[in-house]
Each structure stands twice: as C-alpha cells, then as structure tokens.
C-alpha cells in the first residue's frame, strides 16, 4: 500500500557507505546537505508524502464507492474507522498472523540466504555459477508466475509433489498451517536470492587473511561465521533484515494467488490482503486506508526500533 518494492530496494547501495568510517562532523553540516537532497526530496514528496497524506486523510472520512461517485456526501468521521478496525476481532487475528508469518519468513529467508552465501564461497566455479543462475532465475520470476507454478506443483489432483511423496489427493491449501507453510516456501524461494547475493558480495569483501587466521586458530565454520563474518557483515545484514521485514510484512501476491484471496473462511489473510479486501473488494476505501496507516506505523516503528538497537550495540562494541 505504501512504498513499491522498487523504491524499497533503493538502499541496496547503502552498505558500502556504512562500512567506511563515518565522516563525523555534526556542527559543520548546516543546510548544504539539504540542498543536495532537495531534488530527491521533491520527488519523494510528490510520490510518497502526498499519497500518504491522502491515505491518512481518507482514513478519517467515510469514503466508500457512494462518496467517490457522488451518490452521498463525504463526511468526516474522526477516529470511527480506527475504532471499527480495532474493535474487529478479525483484525487482531489477522495482525497476529501477519506478524508471526512475516517473522517466520524473515528468519527462514535470512537463514537460507546466508547459508547459501557461505556455501557459494566454498564451492568451485561451475557449481557456483549453477547456484547463482538458479537463484537469479527465482529472483527474476514475477511473484504471480512463481505462485501459479507453485500452485501447480502442489495441486492435489495433478501436482508432481503429491505424486512423488505419494500423498494421493492431499490438499495443501485446506489446512491453515499447511497453506501458510506453502506460501512461506514460495516467499522464501523468491526472496532468498537477494539476501544470498548481497551477503556473498559482503563476504568477498572480507580480507582473506582474517578468515585464514581464524581457520588457523582452529575455528569451525560455524564459529568463523558467528565470531568473524557476522560482526564484519553487520551493516549488510541490517539492510537485508530490514528489507526482508518490510517485504514479508507486506506480502500480498503470494497469499492472494495461492490461497485464493485469503484462504478458506479467510484463514490465511495477512494485513495487506485484508486491506485490499476491505478497500477494493468491498469498496470501503476509508477502512482500507486505516489499515494502510496502521501497517505504515507498525513498519516505521519496527524499523526505527531495530536501527536504535543496532546503534546501541555498535557503540558498545
């Protein structure tokens, strides 16, 4: 609802800057940086601030199809949309499911991405190329295509997975958890390459002597990862974690396509799909906006808290 994946992907360039010592000169800055930032801010203002402003405004109005097409006057409702939302038990269960699901996706994506990044540094050129190509293929696949292919793979009647596992006509999307698991696998499949490539690039930038010294000291691979690589990769890991949190919290396509708009009796709804169902399927634009605002605030808060935590850790180190 808020930022498109394209804009969210922009900070990829950040880690390189982060690892160099910061040019710390707080008093000298003045207005010069703002001047340089002005063009970007103007674009951001038009593309981000104004829509967010409208989103916030609509969330305080009664704004349904009847108001849009002039059948009824638009009226100011104060916090009525938010009260309606917060008193809806479905909202809380969807919010809870979204948080748990996003957390599971982030952890799994990071684990898979980092493990494969380390693997990439330890295999020869040909397998590395094959793994890279496979990952890039997954990365390049549009979410709709990926989801549709996964649905075919896990189809109860014609899917090869059931045939290979000998599961008969077991339906993966019937149970709540098995449907979430299926979507989680697809989300991880299409988002681990970003983590893998970024972390791999980071590992390649670590001086070989450091790793060699650790190996000579008898450190295991796990120990090298924990005690040497992770601290050195911290800025990169920060970025990929925040990116993953944002992406996985906002997951839409996979749920929408694979569970047919939210699963049986809405059991697989996540916030973004829930907002879509409210705003567009039932034309309650104001309620959908309220959900969008809540999502925005949650993501902002999560990102800020995470950054603060990291900064505090960094000071102690």
């Amino acid at each position: 609802m808020t930022a498109e994946p394209e804009t969210a992907r922009a900070p990829v360039a950040a880690p390189a800057r982060g690892r160099r010592p910061r040019p710390h000169s707080p008093r000298r800055a003045g207005w010069t940086p703002w001047l340089y930032l002005a063009p970007a801010l103007a674009v951001l203002g038009a593309l981000l601030v104004y829509p967010i402003y409208q989103l916030g405004l609509i969330s305080f109005l009664e704004y349904t199809q009847a108001q849009v097409s002039g059948g009824e006057p638009t009226s100011f409702q104060g916090l009525a949309n938010y009260t309606a939302l917060f008193s809806d038990s479905q909202f809380w269960s969807v919010l809870f499911a979204t948080v748990v699901f996003a957390a599971a996706c982030v952890v799994t994506t990071l684990a898979v991405g980092c493990a494969l990044a380390v693997l990439l540094t330890r295999v020869r050129a040909l397998p590395r190329l094959a793994l890279m190509l496979a990952a890039l293929g997954a990365w390049a696949t549009p979410a709709i295509t990926g989801s549709t292919v996964w649905m075919f793979l896990f189809d109860p009647d014609f899917g090869p997975v059931n045939r290979v596992l000998g599961l008969g006509d077991h339906s993966w999307t019937y149970g709540r958890y098995s449907a979430f698991l299926l979507v989680l696998l697809e989300v991880v499949w299409c988002s681990f390459p970003f983590v893998m490539v970024t972390v791999y690039a980071g590992i390649r930038a670590i001086p070989g002597e450091v790793l060699e010294a650790a190996a000579l000291d008898g450190a295991s691979q796990w120990r090298i990862w924990r005690a040497v690589m992770v601290p050195m990769l911290r800025p990169i890991l920060t970025v990929v974690t925040i990116q993953s949190v944002i992406w996985d919290f906002k997951v839409f396509t996979q749920i929408y396509v694979m569970t047919n708009g939210g699963g049986i009796a809405g059991q697989n709804l996540v916030l973004n799909v829930y907002a879509y169902q409210k705003a567009f399927a039932s034309s309650q634009y104001s309620l959908g906006s309220a959900i969008g605002v809540v999502m925005l605030l949650i993501l902002l808060a999560a990102t800020l808290v995470y950054l603060r935590l990291l900064r505090r850790q960094g000071e102690e180190l």
Partner: peptide
C-alpha cells in the same frame, strides 16, 4: 522535521479526496 513540515504544507494546500458529480 522536514517531512513533518512538508506534511503540514500539504495539509494547507491539498484538498479533500475527489468526489465526482454524476448529475
């Protein structure tokens, strides 16, 4: 500070969401 200022400015100049006249 700046985004907030921009928001306030937008609040002054921007109008309510669109409503069309179907008569």
């Amino acid at each position: 500070a700046l985004p907030l200022a921009a928001l306030a400015l937008a609040g002054l100049s921007a109008c309510a969401p669109q409503t069309s006249d179907n008569s």
